[in-house]
Design a protein around this nucleic acid. Structure first.
Lengths: 228, 228
DNA sequence: TTAGATGTGTCAATTTGATGTCATGGCAGC
DNA sequence: GCTGCCATGACATCAAATTGACACATCTAA
């Protein structure tokens, strides 16, 4: 899922530079030149991360950070402060306001990227792996493995993804196009026949466990995973 | 039961800031400005956790950490190092000395809290048994050594740390990034390929004992420690 | 102090395995 | 039968993981 980053910075040059870098990393970037613009944007779209300039015309970055921390919807949104070197001494005040990290200007795009990723990762709780059981097959998400009658089924990455999708969307037909979108992703474009080949590979992997029949062909339409 | 935290830090401003936060979380905080003060306090009250500044007047934080690891009463007390960014390169030396986690200054109070809770949670079961056995390997935490079929497995510090993490988190896939976060620490920036190299070194060390197969590659995802 | 040993992170070369596409042949339904 | 749709095997290509080599830093022992 695409992460939304809001940058609050009065210098267009810096917004531009950051913008190019983040978009190429797959982030959706929103821009604000001052605190009130930022508030307006936040009201509509709560971002996943805020890059906040310390020096802003009008309300200061520090002040804005404090307000964001007091507001329920933005309380847990991580903030990275952009500060000039001369402002280093005032960092402690930022920490008190609950800022998550600092980047000192001038900063390299590379450094900013790393910090953004680190902060976002930190904010994410460790996901619990679930167990999916259906038609004699068991997917253990935590270990990323599949079992049939106690034995491990050896699958390639794409086979795993395909089976995972089917087992979480059983008893329903999907066209090749739909499978492409859901398994490969929206932007990937493939030949329709390629889906057939992957179905074939999945069936082949399931064959030794007599589970290949679970993946069924619906002639003229597509494929279906069914225990019936 | 109220947990006792000792902070060893020469800057009063930071002690103050941390103090306010921890007290509101229900911790009992003791403060020391240098290593000798710390030793005095520890003699009277063994704390449940130590926050240790890397740069201290007199005995350095790293030196103190090593001494604490060698002393029986404090051997199992978790240590979180407080380091400045410029000291990042010395992270590995700290890990080698048995430091549990790092927090890089400037840090947010929120982050420190999370780290403290994570470390305390992790330390809980460790205080009971210092032996970890899995897949024919035995880790003796007290002596910081590993055995396979009675013979000692010779590991470098990073190999030990990697194996320790795997054996306490078996049967689960981790991406290279997750491994970096959990083995090197959240703020360590490494090339992803570096993880591969360490995996290889660990496997090489385990090879003479036929245990290299326990560290498994999950193509397109990461690595997994598994006895199956 | 110096010299050698050890440990670590990065890179490039190589190997290994997965993936997408095509061509062919089979099968179902009309 | 014919026609369209699907299954299958082969193959070229691409991506991912392994591996060896190296630079640099630190530790150890003279």
């Amino acid at each position: 899922m695409q992460k939304e980053v809001l940058i609050v910075e009065d210098e267009p040059a810096i917004r531009e530079m950051v913008g190019v870098a983040l978009k190429s990393d797959g982030f959706l970037l929103r821009e604000a030149a001052d605190a009130s613009e930022a508030q307006t944007i936040i009201r509509d779209h709560t971002p996943d991360l805020i890059l906040l300039d310390w020096m802003l015309p009008g309300t200061s970055g520090l002040q804005l950070a404090k307000e964001l921390r007091d507001d329920e919807p933005t309380r847990h949104v991580p903030i990275i402060m952009l500060t000039a070197r001369s402002e280093e001494h005032s960092r402690v005040r930022g920490l008190e306001a609950g800022v998550d990290d600092y980047v000192t200007k001038p900063f390299s795009v590379r450094e900013l990227r790393l910090r953004i990723k680190a902060v976002l990762r930190r904010a994410q709780p460790e996901s619990e792996g679930t167990r999916i059981e259906l038609g004699g097959l068991v997917i253990d998400e935590a270990s990323h493995r599949v079992f049939a009658t106690g034995r491990e089924v050896l699958l390639g990455p794409m086979e795993y993804r395909t089976l995972h999708f089917f087992m979480t969307h059983a008893e329903r037909v999907y066209t090749r196009r739909q499978l492409m979108d859901r398994i490969w992703g929206q932007d990937a474009y493939l030949e329709e026949r390629t889906v057939d080949v992957h179905i074939r590979r999945l069936r082949k992997a399931l064959l030794p466990y007599r589970c290949d029949g679970l993946v069924q062909t619906v002639r003229g339409t597509g494929y279906r995973f069914s225990t019936m």
